[in-house]
Each structure stands twice: as C-alpha cells, then as structure tokens.
C-alpha cells in the first residue's frame, strides 16, 4: 500500500514537471506580487520606527515572499479534478481501485506539492533576495522543524479541499463553494496581509480557524517567532487541524459512497 502511494506521488510529481513555461510564468507572477507586498510592508515598518506589531522590516519582507511561495505548495487556490470526476461519474472507477480514495488523492497532492516547492516555492524567495534583506531560520535544526510545519500545512490544504470537493456528491456545482474556500484562505491564512497585523479581535478569530495553519503559522515558524513549548503548540495545532479535516473528509466520503448511484447500465 505504501509502495503504491509512493508511486502515485512520484507520477504526480512527474506530471507536474511537464508544463515548464506555465510553471515559470506562475513563479514570475508570485515574484511580482512578492515585490509589491514586500515594498508596502517594509514601508509601513520603516515609517513606524523599524517595527510594526513586533515584526521588523526584514521579517515582513520575508513574510511577503514566503507567503507567495506557499500558495501553490499548499494549493491555496484549490484543485478541480475531483469535483469534475464526481460530476461526470468517473469517480466510480476511482472507488473501485484497490486503494483508499483519500490516501490516493493525498499522495497525488503531495507529489505535486513536492514539485511546487522547487518550482513555485523557492524561486520567489530567491528572487526576493536580490532587492530585500530576508531572514533565514537560525539554528540548523530549525529548518527541520520548518520542513515539518510545511508538510503539515500541505496536508491541511489537501484535507480542506478534499472536503469541499466532496460536496460535489450533494451539489451539482461546487465552484461557488470552492470560491468561498479560496476567499477564506486568501484572507484568513495571511495571504493578503499577515494576520499578525490584523486588529487583535480579528487576529484571534483568524488564529482560531484552520486556514492560519496553511500559510501564517509555517511562515512564522520560518521566521523563528516561536521557541520551546510555544513551537510545539503551534505545530500541534497544525497537526490537529490536519487530522480533524482528514477525518471529516473520511466521514463525508463514507456517506457519499453510500448514496452514490452511477447512471447507465
């Protein structure tokens, strides 16, 4: 089973490498947005005496580029393959496979994400270094912790979309729901603005939602804002959201499979 999922992930990685120019153009747009956001955030920190809400200009610039790098890794804008297959009835074939649908899709998602780390995650940050002083995780072991947080963020991103995609079993058109999830992610994950700059009540709300685990928390870990038990709690939060959303997805899948009727005969 593990071997099978490994192969699924590997092929998904390979499939993602096919579209070179499209990938480059995506990395380009992430970099452009990174530059604009970093400039604005650094400006705000500079006129506030070098720091705003406890974040330095250097940390905010790093936030701008890292959050752009995370978009495709965690799939912030979603994936539309599964609902299309549910609508067309092709999902029946997927359910016949001798592998669990959720794990299969997760392997698929992780394979693609691994490619996106190289293609869309690293380039904006490296290109950002040309004009901005960015902050790197300090002790070497911090990279390992960040790696764990990034994987957890990717799993949360998957689990969330898996749930919203499965709604296609009940609704004909899930694009509206998917758009709403994308909206929530871009605002509450810290993509439009780091949620640490929100007014305190809104920041508290954003931190209580699963979206923060996708971008805000891993980037904060990258910046080294947490140490000791604080760090353990933040990663624990990400893992809890990942598990909770995966379980929700399983429950939805079980109930959807029971009501699945495929047309034709």
């Amino acid at each position: 089973m593990v071997r099978l999922l490994w192969e699924v992930g590997k092929r998904s990685f390979r499939r993602a490498t096919t579209y070179r120019l499209a990938t480059a153009s995506g990395a380009f747009i992430n970099t452009v947005f990174g530059y604009i956001r970093a400039t604005i955030l650094v400006y705000v920190a500079t006129v506030s005496g070098g720091e705003v809400r406890g974040l330095s200009a250097q940390e905010l610039a790093t936030f701008a580029f890292m959050s752009q790098g995370f978009i495709m890794i965690v799939g912030a804008f979603g994936s539309f393959e599964l609902p299309t297959r549910i609508r067309s009835g092709d999902i029946e074939v997927d359910l016949y496979r001798p592998a669990d649908l959720q794990l299969w899709e997760l392997a698929n998602w992780l394979g693609r994400s691994a490619f996106q780390v190289l293609a869309r995650g690293i380039p904006p940050v490296v290109l950002g270094m040309l004009a901005f002083d960015l902050r790197w995780p300090d002790p070497t072991w911090h990279w390992a912790v960040f790696g764990l947080a990034a994987v957890a963020a990717t799993v949360v991103g998957f689990a969330l979309r898996f749930c919203s995609n499965l709604l296609a079993f009940w609704l004909i058109d899930t694009r509206g729901v998917d758009q709403m999830v994308t909206l929530a992610v871009s605002f509450f994950a810290g993509l439009i603005l780091p949620i640490s700059l929100f007014p305190p009540w809104l920041e508290a709300l954003a931190r209580a939602l699963p979206f923060a685990s996708m971008i805000q928390l891993p980037v904060e870990i990258f910046l080294g804002l947490y140490t000791g038990w604080g760090l353990v709690w933040v990663i624990g939060q990400q893992l809890l959201w990942a598990i909770a959303l995966l379980l929700l997805g399983r429950m939805m899948l079980a109930s959807a499979t029971r009501r699945l009727v495929v047309q034709g005969g």
């Binding site: 758009q179 709403m180 439009i192 929100f198």
Partner: peptide, 27 residues
C-alpha cells in the same frame, strides 16, 4: 449559483479593501 458567485466576487474585493484599511491604519 448566480448569487453565490456574485457574492463571492463582492467578498473577494471587499476583503482586499479591508486588508488595505487595516494596513493604512497601522500608520
């Protein structure tokens, strides 16, 4: 479907505006 999409469009732009207001209120 139409009204879901329509509200998504309104909310999307409104979120951007809210973020802008939050940001400029810091200084």
């Amino acid at each position: 479907s139409f009204f879901t999409y329509l509200s998504a469009q309104v909310i999307f732009i409104a979120f951007e505006l809210v973020a802008l207001i939050i940001l400029i209120s810091l200084v």
